[in-house]
């Protein structure tokens, strides 16, 4: 077993094994019974009827191609919004994080206020606010490619996530040994040079898993537009549109939800994998045979 839970109980003896087996069977039966009850209730109400599912799973259905084309478009829109938001959040987040670390305490006040403000606001509120503020103050955003709604979403997500990234970055820099910065200053680098070429590159390595996890958060949050009703046609919005057209909300939401789970689960696994890899690399860093990348990029 990989985690410490293995220490919590002995290697089971015959009696304990029997008890565990009984509990497994009982637990499994209870879970199965609950699932069966739910399935029966759903079946009673005709939720497993072929006509509700066939547009999703039967390639010969007249709506099959149309439904999956819409889902594809929605997925593309979701990915575009998420990619833009993570890229912008990175840029803004690094700027905010670095200014927070480099400025003198007094100059830092507005930066800290910015961070606390957007960290404390719900993202939904931030997105609605950005949308209405841009509409009412007539800030020109027409020159940006794509829908206006896309940019309301992206800017809202960026404001929230850049602040999170700035904090992740700061934690990464803070976790470095003091000697790194001191060595940089001692060989005559300016504080900015030390930050740019010694502290940030190392902080990035420790940040990488957190960044990938943040991508999951952003991907999930793009679906908020569907609730606000901005009219940006991303995955969940398409799912709702299909559900309305086919009148099968449960089936459509199930498929759309499964798509999100698959993508996000993959991303989460990548984050865990990166974390393992990086922690292995850094724990071997003090061994003489460590590869140069691990010794401190």
């Amino acid at each position: 077993m990989t985690d410490s839970s293995s220490v919590l109980f002995d290697v089971p003896g015959p009696k304990a094994r029997r008890r565990a087996q009984v509990l497994t069977v009982v637990g499994g039966l209870v879970i199965l019974a609950l699932v069966a009850l739910a399935v029966m209730r759903l079946a009673e109400r005709g939720q497993f009827d072929a006509e509700l599912w066939s547009p999703w799973i039967n390639p010969t259905d007249e709506n099959f191609a149309q439904v999956w084309r819409l889902v594809g478009e929605g997925l593309l829109a979701t990915v575009i919004a998420a990619a833009l938001a993570i890229a912008l959040s990175l840029v803004v987040g690094i700027a905010v994080g670095v200014t927070r670390m480099m400025f003198t305490p007094i100059l830092r006040i507005p930066v800290v206020a910015f961070i606390e403000l957007f960290r404390g606001l719900p993202v939904v509120i931030t997105i609605v606010y950005v949308w209405r503020a841009i509409v009412e103050t007539e800030v020109p955003i027409d020159w940006l490619p794509g829908d206006d709604a896309l940019w309301y979403l992206v800017i809202g997500l960026t404001l929230y996530n850049s602040v999170i990234i700035a904090e992740i970055l700061r934690a990464g820099v803070a976790s470095l040994p003091r000697g790194q910065r001191e060595a940089g200053l001692a060989i005559g680098m300016t504080p900015w040079q030390t930050m740019r070429s010694i502290q940030l590159p190392q902080a990035f390595r420790t940040m990488l898993p957190a960044l990938v996890s943040q991508l999951v958060v952003i991907l999930k949050d793009t679906s908020l537009v569907a609730v606000i009703g901005l009219g940006y046609r991303e995955l969940l919005d398409r799912g709702n549109q299909i559900a309305q057209f086919l009148d099968n909300p449960i089936q459509s939401l199930f498929i759309v939800g499964a798509i999100y789970v698959v993508i996000n689960y993959t991303l989460s696994r990548i984050a865990i994998w990166l974390e393992r890899r990086l922690s292995r690399a850094s724990s071997s860093a003090d061994e003489p045979e460590a590869e140069p990348a691990a010794a401190g990029a």
Binding site: A20, G27, G28, K220, S223, Y260, V261
Partner: peptide, 24 residues
């Protein structure tokens, strides 16, 4: 816990709900 079926339930629960948007 030492009971596999309960462990599996918890793992499935966590993975599904952590990776689904709250909206869904």
């Amino acid at each position: 816990s030492p009971v596999p079926s309960l462990r599996a339930l918890a793992v499935a629960y966590v993975n599904v709900f952590r990776n689904t948007p709250l909206t869904i």
